[in-house]
Amino acid sequence: MSETIEKLERLDKKRKEHEKKEIERSSIYLKIFRANRATGEQAHYDTVEVPVQRSTTVLDALLYAKGYKDHSIGIRYSCRMASCGSCGMKINGIPRLACYTKVSELYGDTITCEPLSNFPHIRDLATDFTQFFEHHKDMQPYIQNENADIKDPSKLSEFVQSPEDVDKFLQFSYCIKCGCCYSACPTVAMDTKFPGPQALAQAYRYFADSRDAATEERLELVDDRHGIFRCHFAGSCSTVCPKGVDPALGIQLLKGHMLGYSSNEKKIADLKERLMRK
């Protein structure tokens, strides 16, 4: 009994210590990267003071700065709830979602906001995602199965998957394509043809999905000079992912299949209608 109380006390102490880490301030300085490639505006930083509360996110602070201090600040955002993947930027040097990072989590009075690395820069905090999305498209991120005839609506039916089947790929389907992992990847920084952690994790996501029948074709997509084997398993991608996806894990699992030390024993899922007919 006394042991349990001691354990609870220890946990309570830990929780209090954690809470103390939320830094309370009434205002912070935002140091914002400014540049416009189209007009040739030189890169520099602007610093603005912004009032904050405990729940203020970096995106809130940036929008305050844009609304009340300098309308010309270039930011990309949409949902403000970590769903659309638009607001990725480097906050104090680490790729994060601005709408998902509270100011109270960050140390220091100054918060530095910069555009994501490894993406061509457009203006201020906005970067060009064209190549990133191309890599994603190259992975054919959709179910390929002859039995699923989507052209004829009368034949539409559901696939039947067990919870275990879903578990194999579920975490990878949480990806919102924010580009944080791509920005953190040292291989992407060097090799422009490397698909990057996001695209490779999606390759695994469809490879592991029991509704998908294009198993071998998917392996071929990533099996080239600049493909999956250029990943050095540094794991930076998984560290920064704001959605809890572990791209490095997907990549290693897929490599395992390609090297032959793990086998993909998935049984292609049946359509619900067919099962009913049986």
Binding site: D223, D224, R225, G227, F229, L259, G260
Partner: peptide, 12 residues
Amino acid sequence: MRESQIMKIHYV
């Protein structure tokens, strides 16, 4: 030769 075959040789 496929990259996966080359890398198999590399690891072995």
